[in-house]
Amino acid sequence: MTHPGDEALLHDSFARARAHAFYRDHFAGVDDHRTAPATDKAVLKPHLDRFAPGSEPRGVYLVRSGGSTSTPLVFPVDIGENHAQRHALASTLLAEGLFDARTVALNLFGYADLYRTAAILDDLLERCTATSLPMSAHARYEDILAAARRFMPTHLLGTPSKLQLFAEFLSTTGARLEIPQLLYAGEPLPANAVERFAQSFGTRDFWSLYGGAETGIWAWSDASRKPGLFRILPQVVVEVMSPDSEGFGELAVTNGYRRRFPVFRYLVGDVGRLVEGEGTRLLELRGRNARSFLLAEQHFDLPLFAPLAAGAEAFQIQLRQGEQGGDRLELLLVDPAGNCSTDAAAARLAQLMRDVGPRVGFDVRRVTMAMLHLDPVTAKAPLIADLRR
């Protein structure tokens, strides 16, 4: 579902993409944006792997995708275009009342290895003339608590998984904070975390941002009043590919801000639909597609895990909430013949999980087929069973 105004942006973005080296082969022989295929990381990866910023006529902004250690991509963005999108987003967040000049935000997002969510939020806060306390996801909880007590933040920023670990720390130390506003991104907010954050942080209002390295941040949600519904930034077009009877399908994003390195009909890996509300289009998110999952801000693709189960009759990845508030991944192997070494699979799994560190627990177990989770609708055992909600 697109609006008439979207067609001009799609037409212009396709023309730029078709002429660009990143897309030239992919769109060879395609003359009309309406029939152009979607793009994904597989299309861009060979070009991004060879990209050399030193050969560019002027500098670029580099940002790493939240992919697993085997598949992360580093995307170049024109610096001026990046600033323009940030400025538009900051202006919108100011108008929505998320931030203002009195905001003091405790920033617990991540910043490492070209993955720079924390820096993006710092920049947005400054554009809103707000104060940032840039502690980052890697700070000691004792230091985060001390900063919160010293500067009395009005907003707490971070991924739900990181914030749950901080909440667990506060619980074990008997501490409690009063931070009325909470902004999360990078992961869905588990339903059971809402009450926990209210108890640990004093949260009254929840907000969310949505986007990615490939597209930038382009949507926001007043998650307390309209959970799961996101407003879309102007100059960004969202298309739902092959929607089902309820209108849900894979989301493809075209970003009109990005012209030097175009982003046209890019599959972001999430499933959602477009709905009408308050005189505008809203994006309703359902979750990841069946070929990937999100863990501690990192996207993991299913093919990475298949070699760990080589020789097994079947396998399933189960994602659960751990006892200490963080996430837990279990790789379940149906292997009655004992063809798989659980120790070897665990060692390889540890390599895949090294970027998420202590924030995620993981295990490999040999089970029977009856122990796999069955989808309640299809009665089938999905390869990825997300049981965190």
Rank of each mutant, 00 (worst) to 15 (best):
R16P: 00
R16C: 02
A17Y: 06
A21W: 10
F22E: 08
D25G: 10
D32R: 15
T35Y: 14
T35A: 15
A42Q: 12
F51L: 10
A52M: 14
A52F: 13
G54K: 11
R58E: 14
T71G: 01
V74Q: 02
D78A: 08
I79R: 15
N82I: 01
Q85G: 04
A90I: 05
S91P: 03
T92L: 11
A95G: 05
G97T: 05
D100G: 08
V104A: 08
V104I: 12
A105Q: 06
N107E: 05
F109P: 12
Y111C: 11
Y111H: 15
D113K: 13
Y115C: 02
I120T: 09
L121I: 13
D122Q: 12
L125M: 00
L125H: 04
A130T: 04
T131Q: 04
M135R: 08
R140S: 02
Y141K: 01
E142P: 03
D143F: 03
A147S: 06
P153T: 00
L157R: 07
S161F: 07
L163P: 00
L170I: 05
G174I: 09
P190C: 01
T203P: 13
D205T: 13
G211C: 09
T215N: 01
T215R: 02
G216F: 09
W218R: 11
W218S: 06
A219Y: 00
W220I: 03
S221V: 07
P227L: 10
P234Q: 13
Q235R: 15
G249Q: 12
V253N: 02
T254R: 04
T254C: 05
V263C: 12
V263W: 04
R265L: 00
D270G: 08
V275W: 08
E278Q: 15
T280L: 13
L283S: 01
E284D: 01
G287A: 05
R288A: 02
F293I: 04
H299S: 03
P303N: 01
L304P: 01
P307V: 03
A312N: 02
E313W: 09
E323N: 04
Q324M: 12
G325I: 09
R328L: 15
E330L: 14
P336Q: 11
A337S: 10
S341C: 09
D343K: 12
A345N: 09
A345M: 09
L352G: 01
M353Y: 08
D363G: 03
R366P: 00
L374S: 14
V377E: 10
A379W: 10
A381S: 13
A381C: 09
L383W: 12
L387Q: 14
L387A: 11
R388A: 06
